[in-house]
Simulated scan of single mutants.
Amino acid sequence: MISQLTTGQRADWRRFRKFADTALAPRADMCDAEQELPRAIVKDLADEGWISSLLPEDWGGSARDTVTYGLLSEEMGRACSTVRNFVAVEDMVSHSIWKWGTPAQRARWLPAVAAGEAVLAFALTEPGVGSDAKSVTTEARPDGPDLVLNGVKEWISFGQLADAFLVFAQYEGHHTAFLVDRDSPGIYVEPLRNLLGLRGSMLARITFDDCRIPSDAMVGRPGSGLAFVASSALDIGRYSTAWGCVGLAQACLDASTGYAEKRTQYDSVIMEHQLVQRMLADMITGVRAARLLCWEAGVAKETRASDAVHQTLVAKYFSSTMANRVASDAVQIHGARGIGGESPVARPFRDAKVMEIIEGTTQIHQTLLGRWSSRVHHPADDSVQL
């Protein structure tokens, strides 16, 4: 894969890694312990051009290609999964506004988000609706010149911090998206704390109680909420998560290798123990295989391959399950230190499990890919890209 990167992509990767090491990794444990993402980190990310980087430069973005965006996501995932999650959410919503929003919505929010001056949240999940997104019960109804929104959204990443929400609701029987300002009357934000992982993601439960919004808050057309707005946003989220899992697993591998080279048991460093070697071998293989799948998905997206969405599903499925195995083995290699309060792999271990839940559970991916398998042929068939 590395041999296929351009000179510019390699230079960007080195720059991403340096910033992640110096500005993100030292603050990752703080985000986890204090369960928040400081605005100062948001500003640092904006100053580096890491927010909304997929957008054109005219809208504050960096017009970053998808492979380079993947390398960025890997380095964020290696240093701090909370930060990677934040950037992914902003990219999901800003891309939706850029592609489906009105000129006024673009002008108001896109430059502000890219500059780190505004935060957006993706409000799809509900207390009783997770993977079955088409069944959302939040409803928007016309009321004079305005719309009235009623319903509850839950597990909304950065909902505590957001200045606006991309809300998915039923509108006259159609799944539709709306961009809702946090200052709208009838919005109530309840923090959700003490999560298993991604504890700095500032999740919230958002209640809309006769929340009055202007009719021009709609993003796209009635009925486009799930099929177009949400689906394209979730594809970005899955792609970012897949690469982020590679970074998380790489961090676990690095920590485990360093520890195994120093820790002595039975008169030798544990690196010489065959069972430890087996775990490290599986880690190396898993990380490299996942990185290749992510790169392949990035190329498919960049070239607009017909199976690009499924390539991303493959990458996210494999990478998230791999990250869980690697993080678990990393804790095992560290032994008692792995479960201690100062463990270097405890946070990645907790974060890794969340990766199998967000942007579609492992089981949803298995179902989707299982159905797709009937349309996958041998790679020698030029009509199908693998």
Rank of each mutant, 00 (worst) to 15 (best):
A140F: 07
A121Y: 09
A123L: 09
S131P: 08
V136F: 15
F158E: 07
F165Y: 15
P145W: 07
G128C: 06
E139G: 01
F158L: 06
F122C: 07
G130N: 03
A164N: 07
P145Y: 05
D143G: 04
V152M: 09
A140R: 08
F168V: 01
I156T: 15
P142D: 13
D146V: 06
A162H: 10
F168P: 02
A164I: 05
S157W: 04
T138Y: 08
L149E: 09
T125Q: 11
A164Q: 10
G144V: 05
L161I: 00
A164Y: 07
N150Y: 05
D163L: 06
G130L: 05
P127T: 02
T137K: 15
S135R: 15
E139W: 02
P142I: 08
R141M: 05
P142W: 10
N150E: 09
L124F: 02
F122E: 09
D132S: 11
K153L: 04
A140Q: 08
A140D: 04
F165A: 01
E154Y: 09
G151W: 13
L161P: 01
Q160L: 03
E154S: 15
G151T: 06
V136I: 14
L149F: 09
K134I: 11
D146A: 13
G144N: 07
G151P: 12
P142M: 12
N150R: 12
P145L: 10
V167N: 03
Q160Y: 01
V148Y: 07
S131Q: 15
G128E: 14
L161E: 06
A162W: 11
V167L: 03
D143R: 15
N150G: 05
D146P: 06
W155R: 14
L149W: 09
Q160A: 08
A133G: 12
Q160T: 11
D143Y: 13
V167D: 11
R141S: 12
N150M: 00
S131G: 11
S131E: 15
S157C: 03
L149G: 03
L166P: 00
T137W: 10
F168Y: 06
P145G: 04
R141E: 15
P145M: 07
L124S: 10
G144H: 03
P142C: 09
I156A: 12
L161K: 14
F168S: 00
A164E: 05
G144I: 03
Q160W: 03
L124E: 09
K134G: 13
T137D: 11
E139Q: 14
E154F: 10
P127D: 00
D132N: 14
I156V: 15
P145A: 13
A169L: 10
D132Y: 08
V129I: 09
G159S: 06
A133I: 14
S131T: 12
S135D: 15
R141L: 11
I156Y: 04
F165N: 02
F122L: 06
I156Q: 11
P127H: 06
A140I: 03
V167H: 02
A123F: 10
F122N: 10
P142G: 04
P142T: 13
D146W: 05
D163A: 01
A123E: 08
N150Q: 06
D132C: 07
F122T: 01
E154G: 02
E126T: 06
E126I: 03
T138H: 07
F122W: 14
A169S: 14
F158D: 04
I156P: 14
V148A: 03
